[in-house]
Design a protein around this nucleic acid. Structure first.
Lengths: 143, 143
DNA sequence: TTTAATGCAAAGCGTTTGCACTGCT
DNA sequence: AGCAGTGCAAACGCTTTGCATTAAA
């Protein structure tokens, strides 16, 4: 697993949703629980598969709407990776980077301080950008 | 422009196609010329718009086929960026990285040595990956 | 009862594919 | 004639949207 997600209780999860202004329906709790606690940068389809083991009737529309809503309120982040056209969802809210294994497609979380760009000040000076998310594509052998 | 592409003559372009085993038809020359010399990480649609000023009859299928073929033979690279679902094509064959401006979506080429990861050896040791492409997402003000 | 959320189906967008047509060789 | 390349249109995968139904406050 390329991710370390918090094990939230149902009540903590519900509180997070409510604090974000999202009414905690059964469907939204299930989606949030999976992406925020269990999944590993899942796609919408992977969320659907996982959530349907518990909520067989949930529709694609609700899953997409919920994921979009959770991204909107900042409880989730979208991640787009090379060689995969579908959007992935990231429940890790801490600032962090991603290492993409081009072989398996796996997304490994790298702690923010785990990636130190030596000449960052120079880059910032030249391009004057703020915020920083680094994605490293590599190939992890026999992973 | 976030790119520095070589100004190839038509003959040089044709030779490159032939060397790669791609028959140099008018359509393929036009597509190759645009992505390899003129465009700035264009999408297929941007390629279509540009190429159609000179070759109004070219079809989407031919553009997609040609782009795919050029990627296949290594004359182009695919680039997928966050917040944009469509594939971009990169005519810059030198090893390099990308800085994505989240504001405008612009893709700026960074020379390979312009990005130095301080603790790369440590990262390599931990994840044992080879090859390395770095994408930095930031926001360039009033760009 | 008023309002929000869900589910279904249809539409949308980017991309791929099947197949007939064109145009070199 | 043979064959690669092209173009059209249909199909495809992922995502979004419109709308009727359902559940909740």
């Amino acid at each position: 697993m390329g991710n370390k997600l918090p094990a939230l209780t149902r009540d903590e999860l519900i509180r997070r949703l409510m604090d974000a202004g999202v009414a905690p329906t059964a469907q939204r709790i299930a989606v949030a629980q999976y992406v925020m606690c269990e999944g590993d940068h899942p796609t919408a389809e992977e969320v659907a598969n996982a959530v349907r083991t518990r909520l067989p009737m949930i529709s694609r529309a609700t899953i997409y709407n919920t994921l979009g809503r959770l991204v909107e309120v900042g409880l989730l982040r979208e991640v787009r990776v090379p060689h995969d056209e579908s959007l992935h969802y990231d429940g890790n809210l801490d600032p962090h980077h991603h290492l993409i294994d081009k072989g398996s497609g796996e997304i490994v979380d790298l702690d923010f301080n785990e990636v130190q760009i030596a000449n960052l000040d120079l880059l910032r000076e030249r391009y004057r950008f703020d915020k920083l998310v680094v994605t490293i594509e590599g190939t992890i052998p026999h992973a």
